Simulated assay, not measured.
Amino acid sequence: PGIGKSTLVLQNILSIRGKRILYVSGEESASQLKMRADRIGRLSDNCYIVCDTSLENILGHIKQVEPELVVVDSIQTIASDAIESSAGSVSQVRECAAQLLRYAKASGTPVILIGHINKEGSIAGPKVLEHIVDAVLQFEGDRHYMYRILRSIKNRFGSTSELGIYEMVQRGLREVSNPSELLLSQSADDGELSGMAIGVTLEGVRPFLIEAQALVSTAAYGTPQRSVTGFDSKRMNMLLAVLEKRVGFKLAQKDVFLNIAGGLKVNDPALDLSVICAILSSNVDMAVPRDVCMSGEVGLSGEIRPITRIEQRVLEAEKLGFSTILVPKNNMKGFDTSRLKIKIVEVAKVEEAFRALFA
């Protein structure tokens, strides 16, 4: 709720010229939609709005207007008179989606359904809704941060590895063309701080640089705490065990707090190296140089494993002005590095990465 689903769709349909569009709203009144449209600041003469929750009435409006695009906001508020259960129930969502599917296939008109997701992150209502539609676009992010991510979960027309990153501003959503610059803290003027390491991650096909922040302190209450935001907590525990067993750092009696800056949730294993470097940096209270970034997966024996799309990651780091990047050994085979201005340091083990950073 409040992530910006309706805002994103309204921004898009108001910018489409020359097509008749029917926007069906079961959640908001016409005056609320008008206020939002005025805030976005785009005008359209061919966008028709109807506020109704009856499927039969909506199909009647569709027949009358003959639109070239239909938007239903949201599918959980629409109910059919043929079914006795209330709107939002499994049977209502399934039946309404099936009837709109029949209309879309028969007329060749694209239909956009806006829906909710539940706490587990899956579409609220039946899983069959995902099977019915041609594409599932998931809009996610933390309401307390300004960034939103639009990712494709299913796409019958193209790739599912594309990703859109947006920033919520007063006039709606603005595309973030270079998220790396926003996700890195501008603390170079304040002197270097320990516990921060910059990793190069991939979301879909887009590489961007992200900051891992760690704080290691002596356990105040006897039992050490492990707190993680934006990263898999089980994976962090594994990395702490690697540091303890393979590298010899005693972290068993210390609190470890880890945060991925910007409120993003990252699943890319290539962020492992920056996570352990941030933890070590905080533990020994030595700063990682701000012009150094890294990318690599850490194995259980302390080795740094090769990662995918290494060329894209290196080029992104160079574009943003980094002077050095740490990458897994032999990961750069077949890649011409002679034209690159960035220095590439190949490391095979965790100890080598530490020596390269803190020697």
Rank of each mutant, 00 (worst) to 15 (best):
A98V: 00
R102V: 00
Y103M: 05
S107Y: 03
S107I: 00
G108T: 04
P110E: 04
V111D: 00
I112L: 12
I114F: 10
I114K: 08
G115H: 04
N118V: 04
N118W: 06
K119W: 10
E120D: 05
E120L: 09
G121R: 09
I123G: 01
A124V: 03
P126C: 04
P126I: 01
K127V: 00
K127M: 05
L129C: 01
E130I: 01
H131G: 01
I132V: 09
I132N: 00
I132K: 03
V133E: 00
V133G: 01
D134H: 09
A135K: 07
V136R: 00
F139A: 08
G141W: 06
G141V: 05
G141M: 09
G141Y: 06
D142K: 14
D142N: 15
R143I: 11
R143L: 11
Y145K: 13
Y145W: 13
M146R: 15
Y147P: 04
I149W: 11
L150W: 10
N155D: 03
N155Q: 04
G158H: 02
G158W: 05
S161G: 09
S161N: 13
E162Y: 14
L163D: 03
L163T: 14
M168H: 07
V169R: 12
Q170V: 03
Q170R: 12
R171F: 05
N178Y: 11
S180G: 10
L182K: 14
Q186A: 12
Q186C: 06
S187F: 14
S187K: 15
G191A: 02
A197C: 13
G199S: 04
G199A: 08
V200Q: 02
T201W: 08
T201S: 10
E203Y: 12
G204N: 09
V205R: 15
F208H: 06
L209P: 02
L209G: 03
E211A: 09
E211Y: 07
E211P: 05
A212W: 06
Q213P: 00
L215Y: 08
S217F: 10
T218W: 13
G222H: 07
G222A: 08
T223H: 14
P224E: 01
Q225P: 01
Q225M: 12
Q225A: 12
R226N: 04
V228D: 05
T229K: 15
T229H: 14
S233Y: 14
K234Q: 15
M236A: 09
